[in-house]
């Protein structure tokens, strides 16, 4: 019930009331990703420029000649979002230094899905982070190429059935473990890395604000539930996010200058992953022993994280 306790504070009073992503966008009913994008905009505010990758969020928000965006926004291609954002950042930096534009601080944000971040966009992202641009990169991870019809990516979790890694008579869906993108970003030695889930809006907003306050590159990995691709009812985006967190499938943590901190929203004891798998059509084919194997991996990964948080905690 922690979520409700948080809301004793009356959430609307804590949140930027401006809708920087307008209604009328064409996201599927119950899209968890567009909700996360909406909350991100609220957290970052108006002095933000967004570079977006090709993908669901691009298509649904920028149907020419209209736009859902109320912040400056640019889409160029699929794999290069971090490079575009780095160019916007460099351009604005030079223009501000040379007195050619307003002397106001503007945060540049790159946003992409799991494919645009972890697969095709990986090189541009690695380059931009390594170069130390003052920008945030947010991966809205819905765990497959949803825009093109639910094909697997390196963000698809083990066992999930997708249109290019389908469950079949001799296959149990995705055969590989999900790429741990947040840790890859930690390995870049950037100042701030965090995982967020819109089911935990206060944690979400706090981490976005933190990333905004960092002068340098930050990476945010956002759990983005997709009712269409995960074959789950449209009202489940928030409850599914909560289950992903409570089962440890998607642990909430942050890494600031190499120091780990597990979010206080994480439960003392993780729920079994079955609770998270059961309501989703993409996992429905999994047999008990297959779920057990995934459970074991989730336990190990979570243990690794909590150990890091113990030994690499803030102040050490």
């Amino acid at each position: 019930m922690s979520i409700v306790e948080n809301f004793d504070l009356f959430a609307p009073r804590l949140i930027n009331r401006k809708e920087l992503l307008s209604s009328g966008h064409r996201a599927c009913s119950g899209c968890g990703e567009v909700l996360a994008v909406r909350l991100m905009c609220k957290a970052l505010g108006e002095n933000t420029v967004i570079a977006a990758a090709t993908g669901c969020m691009e298509i649904i928000s920028s149907m020419f000649p209209t736009t859902a965006w109320r912040v400056p926004w640019i889409h160029v291609a699929f794999e290069n979002t971090a490079a575009v954002a780095s160019g916007v950042e460099a351009g604005l930096k030079a223009l501000r230094r040379k007195g050619k534009i307003d002397d106001r601080y503007v945060k540049v944000v790159g946003m992409a899905g799991d494919g645009g971040t972890m697969d095709i966009g990986m090189q541009a992202l690695s380059g931009a982070m390594e170069r130390g641009h003052d920008m945030i990169f947010v991966c809205f991870d819905n765990e497959a190429y949803m825009n093109t019809g639910i094909q697997r990516s390196s963000g698809t979790p083990m066992g999930a059935s997708t249109t290019t890694a389908p469950a079949g008579k001799v296959s149990s869906g995705q055969k590989t473990w999900k790429k741990n993108m947040a840790e890859i970003m930690v390995a870049h030695g950037i100042p701030y890395v965090a995982t967020v889930c819109p089911s935990y809006p206060l944690d979400f907003i706090r981490k976005m604000e933190k990333a905004k306050s960092i002068k340098g590159p930050s990476y945010i990995h956002c759990f983005s539930m997709c009712p269409t691709g995960w074959r789950s009812p449209s009202h489940t985006a928030i409850s599914m996010g909560r289950l992903a967190v409570e089962t440890g499938v998607f642990p909430l943590f942050e890494v600031e200058d190499g120091h780990y901190r597990v979010s206080p929203d994480m439960p003392k004891k993780l729920r079994p992953i079955r609770d998270y798998f059961k309501p989703q059509g993409r996992f429905r084919h999994l047999k008990d022993d297959e779920i057990d194997k995934i459970q074991e991996r989730v336990n190990i990964e979570y243990k690794k994280l909590t150990e890091k948080a113990k030994f690499l905690k803030t102040g050490n």
Partner: peptide, 20 residues
């Protein structure tokens, strides 16, 4: 100092879009 020509063109597109 981009990590590829693809990013070089992407970055100049971003910068030019910003007005640089």
């Amino acid at each position: 100092t981009v990590e590829s020509e693809h990013s070089a063109m992407s970055a100049v597109i971003g910068a030019s879009g910003a007005g640089a």
